Every structure is written in structure tokens, then in C-alpha cells.
Computed example of a mutant assay.
Amino acid sequence: MEEPEFGVLLAEAGNQGLEVIGAVRVLTGLSAWRSGQLLKSAPTMVVEGTWFEAAVEAVRSLNVVGARAELVCGWCQRVMPATDCPVDPERCSSPYLSPTGCPASRPGS
């Protein structure tokens, strides 16, 4: 079965400017200036179209440096805060997966 793609929403840039810019650069490959511009446009998608595990790791890496990032399911568009990663208690509403088929809904993902 095909798995949904996930994205990372940068909800808030936080107060750790240079550290967050560095984390965004690692995730996106953007220059420091473009990463700073991305932070100023929060809330914005930082990563799109990646697999679940990579998106969860990206959310964690941004949150560790003081930003607030959230996981977004590409199929049902659920936004999951870092406190719920990697498991969201809500059932996936994707038309392509069973309610328990989405990796964000599986215990122990």
C-alpha cells in the first residue's frame, strides 16, 4: 500500500534566531539569508513531500532549537503538534488509507 507524504509546518520561529536558521538550512539546503526570510514568513511549510520518519525527525530538530514545528499529513491535511509525534490520537480521514493505515495513527510508529 502506498504511504502518504508528510510535511513540516514551521508554526513559530521562536527566539533562537541563529540556531533556528541553522536548523532550517540543514533541512532545506537554503542559504542563511533565505532561511531567515522563511522564518519571517512563519507559519509556513519548511519541508514537503517526505516520508513520515523524516518529517518527524525534522519536527524534532526544529523544536529542539526553540522553534515550534508541526507535522502535516499530505493526504488528510491533519496538523499534529510535536507533543503528539509520532502518534496522533485522531483517525486519518484520507480517502486512500483505512483509518488505521496512516503511519501517524499507528501506535509505536
Score class of each variant (00 low, 15 high):
L97I: 01
L38I: 08
Y96F: 12
R68P: 08
V65H: 08
S31Q: 06
V46H: 13
C92Y: 10
E5K: 13
L18W: 14
D88I: 05
L9M: 13
Y96L: 08
L97E: 11
W75F: 04
R91W: 15
G66C: 08
P86V: 01
A42G: 08
W51M: 02
A55R: 06
A23M: 15
P95C: 05
G17H: 14
T50G: 00
A32N: 07
E12M: 15
S61R: 12
T44N: 14
F52G: 03
C102D: 02
L39R: 07
S105Y: 03
A11M: 14
E70W: 10
E3W: 01
S61A: 14
G74C: 02
L62T: 00
P81Y: 01
V79P: 10
A55H: 11
V46A: 02
V46K: 04
T44C: 15
V20M: 03
R91P: 12
E2H: 10
P89E: 08
M1N: 07
E5H: 07
V20A: 06
G14Q: 04
V87K: 15
G66N: 04
C92A: 09
G29D: 10
T83C: 12
A82L: 08
A82M: 12
S35T: 05
L71P: 00
T44D: 14
P86M: 09
R34C: 09
R106A: 13
Q16P: 00
V46S: 09
G108E: 11
A82V: 09
C85K: 00
V79H: 11
L97T: 11
S94L: 02
S98H: 01
R106W: 06
Y96E: 10
V24S: 05
A11N: 11
W75M: 03
S105L: 11
Q16F: 13
L97A: 04
A11W: 12
V79C: 13
E2I: 01
M1K: 07
W51N: 09
T83N: 07
W33K: 10
P99E: 13
W75P: 00
P103I: 10
N15D: 09
T28P: 03
V65W: 14
V72E: 06
S41V: 04
V47R: 12
V87Q: 14
Q37H: 06
L30M: 15
R106D: 04
S35W: 14
A42C: 09
P103S: 10
L71V: 00
L9R: 04
L27D: 06
Q16I: 00
L39P: 01
E70K: 11
L30K: 15
E3T: 08
G36K: 02
S61Q: 03
L10D: 09
D84P: 00
G74P: 03
V65F: 14
R34T: 14
G101F: 00
L38Q: 02
S98A: 13
A67K: 07
L97V: 05
A58Q: 04
A55D: 03
A11P: 08
M45N: 06
L27M: 07
L71W: 04
A69T: 07
R106E: 09
P89F: 15
E5R: 13
V8P: 05
